[in-house]
Design a protein around this nucleic acid. Structure first.
Lengths: 110, 110
DNA sequence: CTTATATGCATAATTCACTTATGTATTAAT
DNA sequence: ATTAATACATAAGTGAATTATGCATATAAG
């Protein structure tokens, strides 16, 4: 990603929305999905992703299910009803932010 | 502003673009212009604005002119040629970021 | 066959752009 | 007279991120 500064504050929004669109997912899968959707421009780091997932779980926005794959562990995350509300909030907040920035920067976005 | 986290990394872009569109401006004037353009949603704090202006000046992106208004000081900032290049870069970087986020979040931005 | 890469989770240490707090000073309004 | 607005500046503190580290299995390459 060119300018990682811009990404700040968007991590929760990204994780929540991807989970909403894709259903249950595990951490590594989320990083790969975001990489794919962003055409390699957004590479989530583990140091940011896992603490965010844990925090959202602690707040009751996500529920987890741990699955053993042979000897490997995989932890699936899915939205709770409260999480589903939060996604809507976060996404519209982001859209609102973009609209405001469009006005300030006087640029057409699409 | 609702979520100040999203604003991170946009300060330089905002300052540079507003200066490009308006010509020479002083610090306080920039805060007021941004407040106006954003309909009170983006309120630049002095603790962030002045260090940013100083940094951009030190990097040769801005040139200054200090004017005395009776006993008051006013410091005008204007883009240098290098600053003019930087604005284009920063703005297209932001537009690119928005496009990417639109793909990841699967939202239409106007 | 052993080495690198990919998969998979987790957390501690560090960074750095920002907010908050503080300071100085003039002018206009109530 | 006191408050709010104008106008600049910088130091201290915060917090979400990056970087670094650790553990462990699976697979491809050489």
């Amino acid at each position: 990603m060119h300018s990682p500064e811009l990404l700040k504050g968007t991590l929760q929004t990204i994780v929540l929305k991807v989970l909403k669109d894709h259903g249950r997912m595990y951490g590594y899968e989320i990083t790969q999905r975001v990489k794919e959707l962003s055409e390699d421009r957004i590479l989530l780091t583990e140091g940011a992703l896992y603490p965010t997932l844990h925090k959202l779980e602690a707040e009751g926005m996500l529920k987890t299910e741990t699955v053993m794959l042979g000897k490997r562990v995989r932890k699936y995350y899915a939205l709770t009803p409260e999480g589903r509300s939060l996604v809507k909030e976060r996404v519209s907040e982001f859209v609102e932010f973009i609209r405001t920035m469009g006005n300030v920067l006087q640029v057409e976005l699409h």
